[in-house]
Nucleic acid binder design. Sequence first.
DNA 1: AATTAGCACTCGAGTTAAGTGAGTGCTAAC
DNA 2: GTTAGCACTCACTTAACTCGAGTGCTAATT
Lengths: 354, 354
Amino acid sequence: MSLSERKVKILQAIINDYIATAEPVGSRTIAKKYDFGLSSATIRNEMSDLEEMGFIIQPHASSGRIPSDLGYRLYVDSLMQQRDLVENEKSFLHGMISENVNQIEYLMEETAKMLSAMTNYTTIISEPIIKSTRLKKIHFMRLDEKNVMIIIAAEGNIVKNHMAKMDYLPNDDELYSISGVVNQCLEGQIMESIELEAIEKLHKNLPGYDELITATLKAMQKTVKSSENLQLHLSGAKNILAFPEFSDVQKAKSLIQTLEDKESLKNLLTANTVDGDEVQIYIGNESGIEEMKDCSIITTSYKFADNITGTIGILGPTRMNYSQVVSVLNGMVKNIEVVVKNLNNQNDKEKNDS
Amino acid sequence: MSLSERKVKILQAIINDYIATAEPVGSRTIAKKYDFGLSSATIRNEMSDLEEMGFIIQPHASSGRIPSDLGYRLYVDSLMQQRDLVENEKSFLHGMISENVNQIEYLMEETAKMLSAMTNYTTIISEPIIKSTRLKKIHFMRLDEKNVMIIIAAEGNIVKNHMAKMDYLPNDDELYSISGVVNQCLEGQIMESIELEAIEKLHKNLPGYDELITATLKAMQKTVKSSENLQLHLSGAKNILAFPEFSDVQKAKSLIQTLEDKESLKNLLTANTVDGDEVQIYIGNESGIEEMKDCSIITTSYKFADNITGTIGILGPTRMNYSQVVSVLNGMVKNIEVVVKNLNNQNDKEKNDS
DNA sequence: AATTAGCACTCGAGTTAAGTGAGTGCTAAC
DNA sequence: GTTAGCACTCACTTAACTCGAGTGCTAATT
């Protein structure tokens, strides 16, 4: 059986209607609402075919049809038309740029909130992962006789602190000159794989400071590790509960549990980053997470700097408004890049303000 | 009508039973389960009195009674017996110390998870608030021609970073000597209220660096501000949904919403810190949050260092196991203090390990 | 005077049965 | 190939009914 143009149109009508109403849609509804010039009986026959082909499903014998995962898949792959941002959304997004978000966590938190507000779905953002990025600078800050804070700046101006305890800690001036040597030896090294040569050089140039050197190398590793152990920002969990598909308490509970658990979400989000900057759509079971079989998640990655990227995901019921989410998501990614640029080069703007 | 000893015993029995079963408890149940040597009719009379006094409530005319907020209040204030940690809980808590949690956020996250696991309720932890604490040390880390990271260490070895953009930025060596002057002028100043005198001294000793000085002072303020804008760690939201009192979707949804909103929770948690280190219990409506009228929350504050404290809250249904939570919470607070001590003075231990 | 047994009564929860209506599949006619 | 017509299905709603846990009251008992 071939997928005639008429069938495709009917399928699209079914999906549109179901996205809007969340009710199984029947042949009569289609015949009346959409102007195909066909009777309900004909539509019925076509729907029967579409069901046989697996694009739609009948929840029970005497009800209308709902799209299957496969139906949605066809929809997002070839039926869905690109949709521009409406004025409302544009101004929403624009409003964000002006706010001075000067810490990554805040930026993430705000972005998540904004996306939930715009889409009415649930937003999940992973903080940027540092990968194969190079060391820019190290400082040592002496806190007391034993404790030193090792401050590590990576490319992209990502800065992380690590506390370390030493048996013996040099004074401030000495630490400063040590940091000079360390920087000279390690600058430009890839964080997670420091060349042996560099380490040897370090030991040679700083005899007697083995303890500090070890702590420093460990801190560099931890910087990468801790970003792998990535933080998720969740926002708008309540939104998804508002959809009728989750009025069943049991379902709602297990979904909340899955969201809270974070482990499986992480995998899903990080799977994306490999595939470049395209939007990824996981429909229903495609996510591979049992509890999310009635949900779809649309993900995309954003770039903070070279080798420093994170992922944004928007989670909704399978009948979510794919085209809206895709366009909002694309808009937001552009937006983040603008904000980051501003963050690193803000003085032009500040001059104009004053 | 006076609260005879017998009435108190019956009330206690009602509360115990209701905590265990979540079902309204009737006179016959009490007569059979507890050995008062009284018939159900007598208990019935007493229960009628207790209801009149406001300690118990009849959800509907022909059902058993459930404790009112007032009943729980009496219970926690005078009936509840202190309960020691059981072996299980002790080992649970002890397991935490050995894990090397070397960042505040992780410690909070882990603590929250652990408390949820131990109690089966929902845990809310606020990160420590820095208040009236003094500056310990400032570093400047030059990132490029325009960007500098201002690194601020407060007492208690809390360290925060702030990025700033300058029109002109001195080189590393110059920045180092500037930081020496800044430290000399500002060390020991209370973060949120720097003496004018100190600021003047700063300007006098560092002529021509007004831009950097302004940025530094701003960063100090932000350090305090950002901790006021406190982060909440939530864990075990799913737990509370598991209780039958939240099998109503509507209730569950609005509670999740309240938890996610965080604003009202913040107020509740911070209200506590004023009252010293006692455990606070808010029963039902006492929290002042409409959506939490069927919940109780038990809070206590923990100490990170002088003037650096945070709050832990455990949220459950009003019929939660108050005595368990109180003892677990107390144990955990002690535990955190041990971990923090270890964190600041760990080398003894590490020596033993190696 | 306090306690208890007995009994009528209440009311939520669960069960059953009938009715409703949206929707289908099939067949015969167009 | 399309459509009208019709029997059939099945979730959902409503109402009536039953069940039982629990109460409140009264009269008898201790």
